[in-house]
């Protein structure tokens, strides 16, 4: 179940998309999105993979969970790792700046 909006299943979650061009191949788009997510999830030792219209989220120990859409990733990530996934954690921000080369002197 999505922690954000309480939806069961993957239908009509706000993260699904807004009609972007090039998203007419859902599996390919989900694979691309998984790649985007893995830039962040890698910080927590997690990996997201496209699987049968959904995603699987797997930890270093092999423990995994099925997630229906992007909105459901973070609650599962915290369950799998037992860690808080906070985008406002300065260490996480610094790691993302280093990965994407967007850091600016603070």
């Amino acid at each position: 179940m999505c922690g954000l909006c309480g939806t069961f299943g993957s239908a009509d979650h706000w993260t699904d998309g807004v009609g972007e061009a090039g998203t007419s191949f859902p599996a390919a788009e989900r694979r691309r999105r998984a790649g985007v997510a893995n830039e962040v999830l890698g910080l927590y030792g997690l990996k997201l993979m496209e699987w049968s219209n959904r995603f699987t989220l797997t930890g270093r120990t092999g423990k995994s969970a099925v997630v229906d859409q992007f909105g459901a990733i973070w609650a599962e990530a915290e369950k799998l790792t037992g860690r808080v996934c906070d985008p406002l954690d300065p260490a996480v921000i610094e790691a993302m700046e280093a990965r994407r080369g967007t850091g600016s002197p603070v």
Binding site: L4, F70, I73, P87
Partner: peptide, 14 residues
């Protein structure tokens, strides 16, 4: 959109 959705859902989860 995927980056934005990932970030905002992470922010709102926490």
């Amino acid at each position: 959109w995927a980056r934005f959705g990932l970030w905002l859902s992470m922010l709102l989860n926490r």
